[in-house]
Computed example of a mutant assay.
Amino acid sequence: MDLFLTLVSGVAWTVVYVEAIRVGLRDRTYAMPVAALALNFAWEATYAVGEFRAGVSPQGVVNVVWALADVVIIWTYLRYGRAELPGFVTRPLFAAWSVLVFGSGFAVQWLFLAHFGSHDATRYAAFLQNLLMSGLFIALYADRRGPRGQSLVIAVAKWLGTLAPTLLFGVVEDSPFILGLGVLCSVFDLAYIGLLVWGRRVAAVPAGREPADPEPAGLTP
């Protein structure tokens, strides 16, 4: 069961990254909220180094692959992200802001590591930033007034990729804290999936086309 849930999580998150790259390049934007992207990249880079210090491991290899995928997503953010901001944001200001966001991502991960130790820090940081990402995806939809730079594949894969470790660490390993965070992630993820489905249905209805009201009986000539 442990191996199965780990594989589900690994495959699902890989799908998230690959689809985020594809959608970002297609829509000429970035497909992951930048604060969550910064935390994700810092988590993967930090714990990839930690894993390899003890020797080559499957999780360490996965972390490196995910970190490399994040580098491509970061490139889409750097390439297209300034266009999402107000016009007064100059290139130097955008660069300074980006350094602050990504630097803060590493600082947060290292603070978790210093306080909780590697075993708990990997889990606590991952689920807390996952919950943040779930909420920020909904905010991204609202900010862009639609699904540009987003996809149902990303939403579903993220949900499954988080649900699997929620069951593993929250249920199998009996951690109420992680179980609670995982449940909250699922609530937000399912809400986001519902939002994307609803948006598709609304977009599929031609503008101005509404069902005609039936004429009252007895008024037809």
Rank of each mutant, 00 (worst) to 15 (best):
A217I: 06
L179P: 08
L132Y: 05
P216Y: 07
G180A: 07
Y77K: 03
Q150D: 10
P216W: 07
D2A: 13
A45S: 13
V8E: 09
V64P: 00
L5S: 01
G60Y: 02
G194Y: 03
A45D: 00
R91C: 08
F88S: 05
L196C: 02
V187N: 09
V101I: 10
R91M: 09
Y47L: 05
N40K: 03
Y192N: 11
L160T: 04
E215C: 10
A191P: 05
W159D: 07
V187C: 07
V11D: 12
W97I: 07
A96K: 01
P147D: 15
G170Q: 09
R201E: 15
V61F: 10
A42P: 14
F177P: 04
V99L: 08
V108W: 07
L78P: 01
S98L: 11
L163N: 07
F177I: 14
F94L: 06
V156Q: 01
L7C: 11
F116Y: 15
D189K: 00
L78R: 01
A35V: 15
V108A: 09
A125W: 01
P214H: 03
A35S: 05
G182E: 09
V183L: 12
I138Y: 14
V65D: 02
A96D: 01
I154Y: 04
R79M: 12
Y80V: 00
V16W: 12
V56A: 15
R82C: 09
P86N: 06
E84H: 00
I178Q: 03
E51N: 14
I154S: 01
V171N: 08
I193A: 05
L37T: 06
H115I: 14
A204W: 00
V62N: 08
R82E: 10
G218Q: 03
L111G: 02
